[in-house]
């Protein structure tokens, strides 16, 4: 388990490095490949709840540190104190909420099905980007939403979901490599009950 988690941590750091090389595409409404988001979503599906929360904290913290831009709330005539339009920690919250939703898909991932996780990764990424945009507009005090922004959000989330199978597959392989079993909450209790039930039925059969 420890080696598996260390490997996930290294992958997260590497994803941030690769993210730097991923450009925005002006021809596709400034959409971009959100590698960090895709990896986090895959981790959220493949790891238990406490680990997901820890990764939400680490990933969100690094994301805010790199991509939050403190703007001086300056007008044309004067500048004042620097402040973030999106509060520092918003990405942590956003990743945590996305992870919370994706935790519900762990049983399907355990059964080696990736269709539903991929669809949900797209949905939660789109929702988190939209929430980010809404907070930004709320801060600026005016609402504006164009087709270009809708495409930017949709295409970014689509790209995110398109690369997520690679990460899901990678995490599945790593789990096998490090002999980590993807367990669900209460799985050990369930296994103990099953074992006890088998023992009872075996002893009943012997008695018969």
């Amino acid at each position: 388990m420890t080696r598996y988690l260390l490997c996930l941590l290294a992958m997260t750091v590497l994803a941030f490095v690769v993210q730097e090389f991923s450009p925005r595409w002006p021809l596709l409404w400034n959409a971009e490949l959100l590698i960090v988001h895709a990896l986090f979503c895959a981790i959220a599906i493949a790891t238990p709840f406490p680990v997901m929360l820890a990764f939400a904290l680490i990933t969100g913290f690094l994301w805010d540190a790199r991509y939050q831009i403190p703007l001086e709330a300056s007008t044309a005539l004067a500048s004042s104190v620097a402040q973030n339009e999106l509060p520092f920690g918003f990405a942590v919250f956003s990743f945590g909420l996305s992870g919370l939703i994706l935790q519900g898909l762990r049983p399907t991932f355990r059964e080696q099905s990736i269709v539903l996780p991929v669809v949900f990764i797209s949905v939660v990424t789109a929702l988190s980007l939209f929430a980010e945009y809404c907070v930004l507009r709320f801060h600026r005090g005016s609402w504006f939403f164009s087709l270009g922004i809708a495409w930017q959000i949709l295409l970014s989330s689509l790209f995110c979901s398109l690369i997520s199978p690679v990460f899901l597959l990678c995490l599945s392989r790593l789990a096998k490599r490090f002999r980590y079993r993807i367990r669900l909450d209460g799985w050990s209790e369930y296994e103990a009950i099953q074992k006890r039930r088998d023992e009872i039925s075996a002893s009943a059969a012997n008695a018969g």
Binding site: L57, F61, G89, F90
Partner: peptide
């Protein structure tokens, strides 16, 4: 987790 998030904000 929520306390940490609020603290950061």
């Amino acid at each position: 987790f929520l306390i940490i998030v609020i603290g950061l904000m």
